[in-house]
Design a protein around this nucleic acid. Structure first.
Length: 386
DNA sequence: TCTGGGGTCCTAGGACCC
DNA sequence: TCTGGGGTCCTAGGACCC
């Protein structure tokens, strides 16, 4: 696929291209875009589906390399991190030398194909800004004395933390450049935007509100959720479509609960997300006094919420999220019922781990459209059947 | 200007407690 | 039954990030 126009995307009509190779970008494919539109612009485009497990694998490789250059690494996303070089830069020969060493290590240990953009600055805010300016595979270093000049050339929407809505709000106040934001009255910003006013003010001055925070010091996950957009919106009043929706909901609940259990956590709050065909959406949550951790429990609680939603319009997306988390899945339960439930759940997890995802599942989940796919991949993984 | 899926944080109002 | 002042938790929704 190298040197060809490829898109990370599904191949359905509603699929979204979330990333594109530089050959595709050269033909005018700007993400995000509908795959259909991309195809119209560039008929040779090849859709490739994302492989999240592989991304996580490479993510770990990259973070392992970062750890060698600083004890303070803040993971920002699957492919980004902030490194505090204050303590270690001298040992490696200064910031520029660190950057070159990181790039070299990545090429040698991960592959020649990988590129990385590095920004070095007195703050996270500015480092993030300049690293995005030097894409791909760039390196820029900004010193304190040059920060103001950079901010006066930077549009506010290029700062990490200012989206479309905030851009409009700030523009209405006459704020267009980052330096305008930094010079604006802090009192007025706080009055208008509450707690965030302080954050925006710092942003406009190229300063950080929080220092670099290593992963070990960061809290645990705050929520686990999944959602699914259907190829075609589903009508709750038609039996087959209702079953598909419910089967999908169960599957999402099972997956979210499974991820939560893997972290040894239990939840008290379920949030149900319904998006209708007209794109309007409802988020409804409920908090329960007793925590829970099985997919079936999550599903049943989601159904309680669902029963309070008026489902007259076709449903485009359904989602479920678990929050209000606590550690505690591995604690010993005193009640026999609880112990049995935990043993059953453990057995499910063990079977699915050994034989592949969805080797064992609740009957209702078979209504979900992905059944065929899951079933065949589970078999293939185990028996190499085509 | 309508496109997915994974998240985080903040706000405002209501219910409830002493 | 009404009044004040301090607080917590829950819910719905918005804005933002990759």
């Amino acid at each position: 696929l190298r040197h060809r126009p490829i898109a990370i995307s599904g191949d359905g009509a509603n699929a979204v291209v979330v990333a594109a190779s530089k050959e595709a970008k050269a033909r005018g494919i700007k993400t995000p875009i509908l795959f259909g539109e991309a195809k119209a612009k560039c008929p040779q485009i090849i859709a490739v589906s994302g492989d999240f497990h592989k991304y996580v694998f490479v993510h770990r490789q990259i973070m392992d390399i970062f750890d060698r250059f600083s004890p303070d690494v803040e993971v920002f996303s699957i492919d980004e991190a902030f490194l505090d070089l204050t303590k270690t830069q001298q040992r490696f020969g200064g910031p520029g030398a660190v950057a070159e060493k990181i790039k070299k290590a990545m090429r040698q240990e991960i592959g020649e194909w990988i590129t990385c953009s590095i920004g070095i600055a007195p703050s996270k805010t500015i480092a993030k800004l300049v690293s995005s300016l030097s894409k791909p595979d760039g390196l820029s270093i900004i010193e304190s004395k040059d920060v103001y000049k950079l901010l006066s050339k930077t549009n506010i929407e290029d700062l990490c933390g200012i989206g479309q809505r905030m851009k409009e709000h700030l523009n209405r106040l006459g704020i267009k450049k980052a330096s305008d934001l930094g010079k604006y009255s802090l009192l007025k910003l706080e009055d208008r935007f509450g707690k965030n006013g302080y954050f925006y003010h710092a942003l406009g001055r190229g300063e950080d509100v929080n220092k670099i925070c290593a992963e070990r010091d960061q809290g645990r996950e705050k929520s686990f959720g999944h959602n699914r957009t259907f190829k075609k919106s589903l009508d709750f009043n038609i039996r087959d479509e209702r079953n598909e929706l419910l089967g999908c909901l169960l599957k999402l609940a099972e997956n979210a609960a499974k991820r939560m259990r893997r972290q040894g956590m239990i939840a008290r709050t379920v949030t149900l997300h319904i998006r209708f065909a007209d794109f309007s959406s409802i988020l409804k949550s409920k908090t329960f006094s007793l925590p829970f951790y099985t997919g079936l429990e999550v599903y049943q609680k989601a159904l309680i919420i669902l029963s309070e939603v008026f489902l007259e319009r076709p449903v485009r997306l359904v989602g479920v999220r678990l929050s209000n988390l606590k550690s505690g899945y591995f604690q010993k339960h005193l009640l026999l019922e609880d112990r049995k439930k935990q043993e059953l759940t453990n057995a499910f997890d063990a079977i699915n781990k050994k034989w592949g995802a969805c080797s064992i599942q609740h009957g209702l989940a078979l209504y979900s459209q992905e059944r065929a796919y899951d079933y065949s991949t589970a078999l293939q993984r185990r028996f190499r059947v085509s």
